[in-house]
Amino acid sequence: MIAYKFDYKVANSIEEAFSMLSSAGDAGSFISGGHSLVPAMKLRLAEPETLIDISKIPGMSGVAIEDGFITIGGLVTHAEVASSYIIKESCPGLAECAGVIGDAQVRNKGTIGGNVAHADPGSDYPGALIAFGATICLSSSEGSREIAAENFFTGLFDTAKEQGEIVTAVKVPVASSSAYAKFPNPASRYAVVGVGVALNMENSTCQSIIIGVTGAADHAYRAKESESILNGSELEENNIEKAASAVSESKEMMNDLVASADYRTHLCGVMLKRAIAKAKYRS
C-alpha cells in the first residue's frame, strides 16, 4: 500500500499554510496528525499532489477555558483531550469520548481538527460535539468564521468546511453533566454507534437534554425527537424507553459488514440509555 507521489511542504505559520495551498490549488491538502488522511492515501482513495503539514504551526495546540467556553486548538491530540484537567472537569463527556477513540497510539497522534475535518461516519467526536453544543472555528485566507457542530457535519466524509479552510479550534461550552457511550468496532475501534448526551437537571426534572449520534447514519446528527420526549420529564424508565426507540429517528441507518441497519437501530437505543445513565450520575 504505497500512496501516489506527492510533494511535501511544512508550514510554519497559518499564513504560510494558506499561501502554500493557494499555490497548490485544488490538488493541495493540509495534514496534521494524518491518522485519517494517511490511511486514505495508502488506499489511494485520496491523492493530494501537495501535502501541506500544518502540525508545526504555533498557537493551535492548547486547551483554555474562558467565560464558560473551553477552546481546544485544532492540533490538540485525542490523548491530550482525554487527559486535560480542564476538559475532565468542565466537560467530562468530551474527555470520555476522546479516551475511547481508536487506541493509545492513535490517540497520541490524531488531532481534533483533523478528525472533524475528515468527518468519518464512524468517528467518535462528531456525535459528542453535537451533543455538547460545540462550535467549529474555521480560518482561510479570506478570514475566519464559526459554525455550530450540529450544522457542520453534512454527509459521508462531508462537512460545511470549504477547500482552503483550516479547523483552527473547537469551542465547547462547559457541560458538567455530559457523557458519551459507544459500541466499538472490535478491530478498528471506530464507533459502530456512539451517542453523546448533555444533560441539565433541576431538582429531578430534565430541564434540557441534547443528544448527538454518530456511526449510525452516513453522518452524525442531533436526535431532536428523543430530546423532546425527555425534555421536562423526570427521566422515568418509560420515557427513556420511548426516547431510546426514537433515537434512530427516520434516518437511514448504515448497513455494512460490521452491523446491519436493524442492529444499528437497536444499538442507538442502548447507547442512548447508557449515556443518559452516566450523564445523570454526573448531574
Partner: peptide, 24 residues
C-alpha cells in the same frame, strides 16, 4: 493501524509507524 506491531516512540510517545510518512 489496527494491530500495533509497528509501534515506536516518537518524541517519547507510542505511535504506529505504518500510519505516518517518514517526512512527518
Amino acid at each position: 493501524s489496527s494491530c500495533g506491531s509497528c509501534t515506536i516512540h516518537l518524541d517519547g510517545k507510542a505511535m504506529k509507524s505504518c500510519t505516518m510518512f517518514a517526512v512527518q
